[in-house]
């Protein structure tokens, strides 16, 4: 079985006070640490364990600059067989649709049975690339997978729907599945594991090799423009609600209502 797993390098901002850079449109990158998108980590584990169980080959693909190669190395250390790096200055600023387009061009040229992506990326949180890529490749897809099995040339996927329910769907291969966190327990990647794959060659595909004219790429790849980034309004420390118990409770309900808690 040939599995393609799409991954992304994202800044780890969980415990970090983020700042906007001078352009006002991007994160202040200085002092940020980067790593694999959490969802993609589950997708890689799914790919590796499917190949372990069924044989075949798994290939990790990313779109990004030279520094993004590290997530491909990490995928290799986890057990992915090959990696593919879509890298060209012309790809800068590609939106989700643009990324899907690049991925489609790279993937369509190869044999594949299953394409895996993370459900969303923790930075832009679009959750779009998987579905768009499936549409561009003309294959069936399912989002938010919490369980994935492959049997008799079909993928059987459990995925999240509304109201805490899950639905089981069966997809003919080739298909695309975007996975939710918790679908498996991703294996740990040790520093030594990364060192072991440091010398493995990773082919780089640029705009030309994907059949794109670099001059036109921008217009094609970046339709959604980031106008500005700004801090959501939030005070420091809790706003203490005062008054009688009843007043406090009514004020609390008001706040909960504003924030979608009711």
């Amino acid at each position: 079985m040939e599995i393609i797993v799409c991954v992304k390098r994202v800044p780890d901002v969980a415990e970090v006070e983020v700042e906007v850079d001078r352009s006002g449109r991007a994160l202040e990158r200085q002092d940020l640490a980067y790593g694999i998108n959490e969802w993609d980590n589950f997708a890689i584990e799914a790919a590796v364990s499917l190949v372990e169980a069924h044989g075949g080959r798994s290939t990790a693909v990313t779109v990004g600059g030279p520094e993004d190669e590290e997530v491909l190395r990490r995928a290799l250390a986890m057990g992915v067989n090959e990696a593919l790096h879509l890298c060209d200055p012309a790809f800068a600023g590609a939106d989700a649709h643009g990324v899907a387009l690049l991925l489609q061009r790279a993937i369509a040229a190869r044999p594949f049975d299953l394409v895996l992506t993370g459900a969303i990326s923790s930075d832009q949180r679009n959750g779009q690339v998987g579905g768009m890529l499936a549409a561009l490749l003309g294959i069936p897809q399912v989002a938010l997978a919490t369980e994935l099995k492959v049997e008799n040339g079909r993928a059987v996927v459990r995925h999240e729907v509304e109201g805490g329910l899950e639905r089981v769907v069966e997809l003919d291969l080739p298909a695309l599945v975007s996975v939710q966190t918790g679908i498996n327990e991703p294996r740990y990647v040790s520093v030594r594991g990364i060192r072991k794959v440091a010398d493995q060659a990773i082919p780089v595909l640029d705009a030309a090799s994907l059949g794109l004219d670099a001059a036109q790429a921008q217009a094609l790849l970046a339709q959604v423009r980031i106008e500005e980034l700004f801090l959501p309004q939030r005070g420091k420390g809790a706003e203490m609600l005062e008054g009688s118990d009843e007043e406090k409770v009514l004020k609390l309900i008001e706040r909960l209502r504003e924030r979608g808690g009711l």
Partner: peptide, 18 residues
């Protein structure tokens, strides 16, 4: 894995900024 990954990325197990 969480604290170990944070140690690797941030140099501290909390994942706070260096």
């Amino acid at each position: 894995q969480k604290p170990l990954a944070a140690l690797e990325k941030h140099g501290n197990p909390y994942g706070k900024m260096a």
